[in-house]
Design a protein around this nucleic acid. Structure first.
Lengths: 342, 342
DNA sequence: AGGGTGGCCGTTACCGCTAACATAGCGCGA
DNA sequence: TCGCGCTATGTTAGCGGTAACGGCCACCCT
C-alpha cells in the first residue's frame, strides 16, 4: 500500500533484459511473439517482465517499426445513440485484427473536424473512418495525402476521398415521402434540427421534398430546434406545429428521438394515430421498441456500416492498398403503427 | 483525382527544413512555437509546411520529449448515455489544456478492463480517468506503477489508487429508500440489471436494502434483465413483476431507462401513479424530461464528475504530483411526480 | 569428415523528433 | 576596444524500441 519511496523511472526493455539475462532484442521478440525464441528463455523473459510489471512502450515501438495499430474514427457526436452503434460495429470487427479504434468528436463543426483530424493523423494511424463526405478543403487534402485507407461513412451521396460505406439519405427521404403519399396523406409537416452542418438530415429533406413535388405536394409547415432533450423538444415542437397548422395530417421528423417525443404527445392528447395524423422518424433506434406503439422509421444500418468500414480498413491494412471501395447499403422502411396501411 | 504516381514516403521535418532553408530544429521550434525564432523565418517555415501539407509526427515527438498529451479514459460502455455525459465534462475541461482524451471501453468486463488499460498505458498517457474502484489486482498494480495521475470516477465507496471523484452509491440507495418509506410505501419491488460487475448498481441496492431494514422492511420481489432495449425491458419487467406480485406499491429501478419503460407501462395500463404505485429510477437522464410525467430519480452528477476528474489530471499535469484528492459529490433527489408527496 | 541447414540469439543502425548545449552575430556600456 | 548579454540558429546525442543481418552451434545427411 505504501507509496514507493523512489519514484523510479519507468521500465524499459533493458530492465527486463537485465533481469532475465538476455539481450533487449530477445525480450522484444518474446513480448511480440515474433521470431524464434526457445521455450526456456521465453518463459524466463515473461516471468521477469511480469515480476517487474513491465508495460511496453508503443511509442518507441511504433516509431521503430513504422507501424501503428490505431484506426482513427471521427464522428460528430456521441450523445445521440447513432454513432455509438457505428462504433460497436467497428469494434466488433477490429476486435481480432490487432487494430484499435480511437475516437474523435467534432460536434458537427467543420473546423473542429479539421483540427481533430490533424491531431489524429499526427499519430500516424493505420486508417481513418470519418463520418460524412463533406469536409473542409484542408481536411480533404490531409485525407488524400495521408497515404492510408480512408473510409467515409454514413452517407454516399457525393464523391468520397477513397472508400465509402453508407446509405443514400437523399433516396431515403424520397422513399419515405413515397410511402407517405401512397398511404394517402397530403398535408405534411416537417420537424428537424437547426444544424447547418448536418448534411445527412438536409439530404433526406431534399429527397423528401423532391418526391412530394412529383405528386404536386409540398411541405406545408416546418419546425426546427436546437439543443436540449430531444424527446422533450419533439413534444414541444409537435405541440407548436399542430397549434399553428392544425390541419396537418402527417409529421415527418428528422430523427427518431424527436419523433418519439411527438408520438408521446399525440398519445397523451388522444390524437388518432395513424388515422387522423401519421408520424415517421428516421434511424431505427432501439429506444423505439419500448414505446407504446411502433413508430414508422427507416433503419440507417448503423451497425452494418461500422462493420463494413472496419472490414475495409482491416482488409487494406493486411492486403496493401486497393482503394476506392464504395458500399451502398439499403435502408429498410419500417412502417410500424404510425402510418396508415394502404 | 488520380492517385499520385509516386506514393511518396510521408513527410518529415527534414522535408520542411529543406524547403525553407533552415535547420530541422528551427522548424521544430516554429511548429511548436517554442523558443525564439525571428518573424521572417517563422513565416517562411509555416508557409513551407502548409505548402507541403506537413503533419507532425507525434510519435517521434513524444518519444523524444517524453511527453504525451493524451489522457486515457476507461469506461464500461458508451451506449447508456451516462458515460457520454461524463466524457462531455472531461472534454470541456481538457479542451484548453493541450490534453486530449482517448476513450477505452470495457463492457463491464474486468478482463477487458485490464487489457484496455494495458493497451492504453503502453502509449504512456499523461493521466488515467477510469470508472469505478474495483479492478483486477493486475490492473491496480499497473495503475499504481504508472507514475501518472490516476482518477477513479463515479464511485467513492472504497479505497482509490490515487484520486477519486464520484458519489456514494451506497448512500444514494439509502437516501432513496428513506424517501420512499417516508412517503408511506411499504411493499417494495426492485428491478435491475443482471450484471455482476456493475458494482455501483449493487452498492445502491445494498444501501437501499439496509435503509429499508431500519424500518423493518425488505424488498418483496425482484426482477433482473440483461441485454436488449432498456426501455422495452423496463416495460416487460414491470409487467412481469406486477403479475407475480400484484400487491407491490413501489418499484425501484436500477436505472432511469428501465424506469421510464415501467412508467410508460403504468400510464398505458391506467395504473394510478403515484397513488397506488410509486416509481423511482436512478441517474437523472435528460431523456426523462420528455416523458409525460416526471419520474423520481437521483442525479448522478455525471457532467460534474467528468469536469472534476479532468481538472485533477490537468492540475497535476502542470503542477507535479500531489496525489490522493478525493472529491465526493452529493446526488440530488428529484422527487418528480411518481412518488407521493408526504 | 565436410558442409549444409535451421534454431536461437546478439549487434548495428536507424525511426523522426526534441533537450541541451554550442555557436555566431549584434548592440552597447565602460 | 573589449567583453558581456542577448537573440537567432545550428549541432549532437539520445528517447525506447525494431528491422535486418550475421554468427554460433548442434544436428543430420551423404
Amino acid at each position: 500500500m505504501a507509496k514507493d519511496p523512489v519514484p523510479r523511472r519507468t521500465l524499459t526493455l533493458r530492465d527486463v533484459s537485465e533481469a532475465s539475462g538476455v539481450s533487449e532484442m530477445t525480450v522484444s521478440r518474446v513480448l511480440r511473439s515474433r521470431g524464434d525464441v526457445s521455450v526456456s528463455t521465453r518463459e524466463r523473459v515473461l516471468e521477469a517482465a511480469r515480476a517487474l510489471g513491465y508495460v511496453p512502450n508503443k511509442i518507441a515501438g511504433a516509431l521503430a517499426s513504422q507501424r501503428v495499430n490505431l484506426v482513427a474514427v471521427i464522428i460528430p457526436s456521441l450523445s445521440n445513440m447513432v454513432f455509438p452503434e457505428v462504433m460497436t460495429g467497428i469494434s466488433d470487427v477490429l476486435e481480432d485484427t490487432g487494430l484499435q479504434p480511437v475516437v474523435g468528436v467534432t460536434n458537427y463543426s467543420p473546423e473542429r473536424e479539421e483540427k481533430v483530424l490533424y491531431e489524429m493523423l499526427s499519430w500516424r494511424p493505420s486508417g481513418v473512418i470519418i463520418a460524412g463526405l463533406e469536409h473542409t478543403p484542408a481536411a480533404r487534402a490531409m485525407l488524400q495525402n495521408a497515404g492510408i485507407p480512408i473510409v467515409e461513412v454514413m452517407d454516399i451521396d457525393g464523391t468520397p476521398v477513397d472508400s465509402a460505406v453508407g446509405i443514400s439519405h437523399f433516396r431515403a427521404g424520397r422513399h419515405m415521402a413515397a410511402a407517405i403519399v401512397a398511404a394517402g396523406y397530403r398535408r405534411i409537416g416537417f420537424l428537424g434540427t437547426m444544424m447547418p452542418h448536418d448534411h445527412r438530415a438536409r439530404k433526406r429533406l431534399e429527397g423528401f421534398e423532391e418526391e412530394l413535388a412529383k405528386s404536386g405536394l409540398e411541405v406545408q409547415d416546418r419546425e426546427f430546434y436546437s439543443g436540449g432533450s430531444q424527446l422533450l423538444k419533439g413534444r414541444e415542437m409537435t405541440e407548436a406545429i399542430l397549434t399553428r397548422s392544425p390541419d396537418l395530417d402527417f409529421l415527418y421528423y428528422s430523427n427518431d428521438m424527436i419523433a418519439a417525443g411527438g408520438l408521446l404527445y399525440c398519445l397523451h392528447h388522444g390524437i388518432d394515430v395513424p388515422g387522423k395524423l401519421g408520424l415517421a422518424g428516421f434511424n431505427g433506434v432501439e429506444l423505439l421498441e419500448g414505446l407504446p406503439c411502433r413508430l414508422a422509421t427507416m433503419d440507417a444500418c448503423r451497425h452494418e456500416i461500422g462493420r463494413r468500414a472496419a472490414e475495409i480498413i482491416a482488409g487494406q491494412h493486411e492486403a496493401g492498398a486497393t482503394g476506392g471501395i464504395i458500399t451502398e447499403l439499403e435502408p429498410k422502411l419500417q412502417p410500424g403503427d404510425t402510418i396508415r396501411s394502404t
